[in-house]
Simulated assay, not measured.
Amino acid sequence: MVRIAVLGCGTMGLKIAGNFAYYGHVVKIFDSDLKQLDSACERIHHDEDQLYRDGLIESPKFLGQILCLNRLEDAVKDVEFVFECVIENMEIKQSLIESKQIALDV
């Protein structure tokens, strides 16, 4: 089991989180948009159901755990990998990476 943080819960972030959770890993999803974060689990379960119905996965449930967090410090704490999946805006990306570095130093 690997502990992973996914920063951003748009389409790409949720697909990455779901893939790792399917194989039994612990995934922490962070997003500063609480509306997106609140709907993340519902969207992941929808993907999960669709993949199973299409015959693309063998088990109807992911083996791992997904945690949706609104504090960056909590999302990156004690993880082995961090995936940055935020909108393609360099200022937002730089701000997030700087915040992540501060969170990791704490």
Results as ranks from 00 to 15, higher is better:
Ser95Gly: 15
Cys68Asn: 06
Lys15Pro: 00
Ile44Gly: 03
Asp105Ile: 08
Ile66Ala: 04
Glu88Ile: 09
Val86Cys: 13
Cys9Gly: 05
Gly64Ala: 08
Gln101Val: 10
Ile87Trp: 01
Glu42His: 11
Cys85Trp: 01
Gln94Ser: 07
Phe20Lys: 00
Glu58Arg: 14
Leu34Gln: 12
Ser39Pro: 05
Glu91Gly: 06
Ser95Leu: 13
Ser95Trp: 07
Phe20Arg: 01
Asp38Glu: 15
Leu7Gln: 03
Glu58Thr: 12
Glu80Trp: 03
Asp33Trp: 13
Ala17Gln: 05
His45Ser: 14
Ile57Trp: 09
Glu88Phe: 08
Ile102Lys: 12
Arg53Val: 11
Val27Gly: 05
Cys85Leu: 03
Ile16Asp: 02
Lys100Phe: 09
Val86Met: 15
Asp78Ala: 07
Asp31Lys: 08
Lys28Pro: 02
Ile44Phe: 12
Ala75Ile: 02
Val79Pro: 00
Ile92Ala: 15
Asp31Tyr: 07
Leu72Ser: 10
Glu84Val: 09
Phe83Asn: 02
Val2Phe: 14
Ala21Gln: 02
Phe20Leu: 01
Ile16Asn: 01
Cys68Phe: 14
Leu7Val: 12
Ile87His: 07
Gly13Cys: 02
Leu104Met: 09
Asn89Tyr: 09
Ile29Gln: 04
Ile29Leu: 12
Val26Arg: 06
Asn19Trp: 05
Asp78Leu: 03
Asp33Tyr: 10
Gly64His: 03
Gln101Phe: 09
Val82Trp: 03
Ser32Lys: 15
Lys77Leu: 10
Gly64Phe: 02
Lys35Tyr: 11
Arg53Pro: 01
Cys9Leu: 07
